[in-house]
């Protein structure tokens, strides 16, 4: 499909940025953070066209932006960022993405790579067993009831902590303290809840992962020290999101937004960019459903993090306190705020 690559003008701003000047229906410029090498790598795919498409959406402010990890997505490019005026702007479920609040959590530990390496095979086996991954995987966390769902949608990561999955100190290190406001559980459909009912504490498939890492190099001793990081220290990275529940929430709202875009006279260069004004009922309802799914994702990473701690505690015969597997950060990358 290389015939659909971007053929419009591109200007280099500086060593690390290019600009797609505003033209046609674009309301703002496109700005992409790529050097020459990265730019060469994306010339033949469609992501620059997608940056230009996002620039046509009503109420977009300043620029349609692409991060250095930019590549071909659907609707928005992967790595796409856009800000919209609260009065004139739109919200797009396709822009947020299917995996609402997909994010990355980093756990530290007091262990070094030399301590962990002899146990690596046992450790990986136990992690695979306790934290299911792959297509349609079901978790060991009890299946969620309707009442559970209402709490997890409103409380986010705090809800599993109330049930013994972690410590309230964890919340201080999560984006938004693990809870997006204005969630409305009634706006998540029964279909979405059915897809997510047994998926809390599961990684899922695709590019999601749980990784045992070690600190190979320290660039700033002071910051590393403040974050509790040191040379050769073992850490764990968790990358996942809201699983089938988030995907279905996106899907449910795409149908609504396709109709809304027609209703509000929004011209779409790609149906996946379907959207509605932020202040419309469709826009507000999506944001409340999205917040519910985002909070489910925070809870999912919280459950997984705690299962990781339990596995490490069992294998290394140390208490969770001795292991020091605290959260360093938890940041989402599929979200609207």
């Amino acid at each position: 499909m290389s015939e659909q690559k971007f053929t419009g003008p591109v200007e280099r701003i500086d060593e690390n940025r290019i600009r797609i000047p505003k033209s046609g229906n674009m309301r703002v410029d496109g700005i992409v953070y790529v050097d020459e090498t990265l730019h060469e790598g994306i010339k033949d795919d469609m992501c620059l066209q997608q940056v230009a498409n996002v620039a046509t959406l009503p109420g977009i402010l300043k620029a349609s932006i692409g991060m250095p990890d930019i590549h071909w997505g659907y609707g928005f490019p992967i790595g796409g960022v856009a800000a919209f005026d609260l009065n004139e702007g739109v919200v797009s479920p396709g822009g947020v993405g299917y995996d609402i609040n997909c994010g990355v959590r980093l756990l530290r530990s007091n262990l070094t790579k030399d301590e962990v390496r002899p146990e690596l095979k046992t450790l990986v086996g136990a992690l695979f067993h306790k934290i299911p991954s792959g297509v349609g995987s079901s978790g060991t966390f009890p299946r969620l009831s309707e009442g559970d769902y209402k709490k997890v949608f409103v409380k986010g990561a705090a809800w599993p902590i109330e049930h013994g999955y972690g410590d309230s100190d964890d919340l201080k290190h999560l984006e938004a303290e693990g809870c997006i406001p204005h969630a409305d559980p009634d706006l998540v459909t029964p279909r979405a809840k059915k897809r997510g009912a047994d998926q809390l504490g599961t990684l899922g498939s695709g590019n999601h992962f749980l990784e045992i890492d070690y600190v190979a190099r320290i660039f700033d001793e002071d910051i590393a020290s403040q974050l509790g990081l040191f040379q050769d220290q073992v850490c764990v990275t968790i990358h996942c999101g809201s699983r089938g529940l988030g995907h279905q929430t996106c899907e449910d709202n795409l149908g609504i937004m396709l109709a809304a875009a027609r209703k509000y006279g929004i011209n779409l260069p790609d149906s996946q960019l379907c959207c509605a004004p932020i202040k419309s009922n469709e826009g507000k309802n999506y944001l409340s459903a999205m917040a519910s799914a985002a909070n489910f994702a925070f809870a999912n990473r919280q459950v997984i993090a705690h299962l990781v701690r339990r596995v490490f505690s069992h294998i290394f015969k140390k208490s969770e306190g001795e292991l020091g597997m605290n959260v360093v950060s938890d940041v989402c990358h599929n979200i609207a705020k």
Binding site: G73, G75, G94, Y98, G244, C250, E251, L254, Q272, C274
Partner: peptide, 14 residues
């Protein structure tokens, strides 16, 4: 054998 995990059917270039 599961070959591919499909998560969503998109509207992109549909």
């Amino acid at each position: 054998e599961i070959k591919t995990g499909i998560k969503a059917v998109t509207f992109h270039q549909l």
